[in-house]
Each structure stands twice: as C-alpha cells, then as structure tokens.
Amino acid sequence: MQRINREAGFRAKEDRLKDQLVRGLAGDDTAYRTFLSELSAHLRAFLRKRLGQLPDEVEDLVQESLLAVHNQRHTYDPGQPLSAWVQAIARYKLVDLLRRRSAHEVLNDPLDEEMNIFSTADTDAAEARRDLNKLLDGLPDQQRLPIVHTKLEGLSVTEAAKVTGMSESAIKVGVHRGLKALAAKIRGIR
C-alpha cells in the first residue's frame, strides 16, 4: 500500500514538473522558473547521494546540471518520461566530472541503479565553490552583454538591443552562445 502511494507520488510529481517544463518551453518564464527551482532540489539530493566523498562538488554540479538542462532543453520530447531525461543529463554530468577527476572509486552507488530521480529532494543549498559571475566576466562582449542585460538586469530583448546597439537577433544568439560557452568554460576549469 505504501509502495503504491509512493509511486502515485512520483507520478504526480512527474506530471506536475512536466507540465511546468512544457509551459516553459512554450514561453512561460514563470512556470519555467518554478520547474528549475523544484528540479534543483531533486538534482541536489540525487547528486549528494552519489558524491558522498566529494561533498564540496555537489552544489557546483547542481548548477552545471541546471545549465545543461537549460542549454539542452530543446531535446526534451514531451512523449518521454521527464525523470528519464533529467536523470540521463544528471548522470552524464556526474560521469563527466568523475572522468575529469578520474575518481571512479568515490562513487557510493552504482550509477545504473533504478532509482527515480524525483523520489528524493534536498532544498538545503550549500555555497557553490565556483563563482559563475567570474566565468561570465570572461566571456566575449557580444555574449556577455546580452546575458548581463537580459538575464541579470531583466531588460527585454528589444531594450537590450537598444542599450548595446546590437540587433535583436544578435542579442538572442549572444545569450544562447554565451550560455553554451559558459558550460564549456565549466568543463574546462575543473
């Protein structure tokens, strides 16, 4: 009985998060923010459990996984379970980290364990060690300025285009490329 309740719980969670993501993909930024914020708690619990001996890495990897989810969100197919998609991304970033550190032995659990990522959540965010602001500062202007104006100062694309003298499409491309470059920088510095 308890098991049935728990599974019904995952399904409700899955449906709610999927709904938020799908609305986010259609342009609803508020739903998308809620999605990322709930997702971060699940990512944190999932990664903390698997990075038992590297607790300092957890928050950095949560942020890196969120960035990966964001940059690759166009690959989500609504016909597919959201948990499988998210879990595959988190696993990929985890394996990538361990490969870079060549520290496979620190794994607590086998990675292919069939645990649903939405079964655990952890809202207790630690301080990230890596400062993303510093990495952002290292981006070229045509990527940094669009990100700073639209994403940090909250200007619209049109306003950001006016302030910078760039075209609106250059602003959009700049944000997109900049966030991808940010992910590449994160991969590079570890």
Binding site: L36, S40, K151
Partner: peptide, 8 residues
C-alpha cells in the same frame, strides 16, 4: 542562477 536562466 535559476533566476538568471529563467529570465527572458
């Protein structure tokens, strides 16, 4: 960071 990603 989440706010940043979701904004616009």
């Amino acid at each position: 960071f989440i706010s940043m990603l979701a904004t616009e």
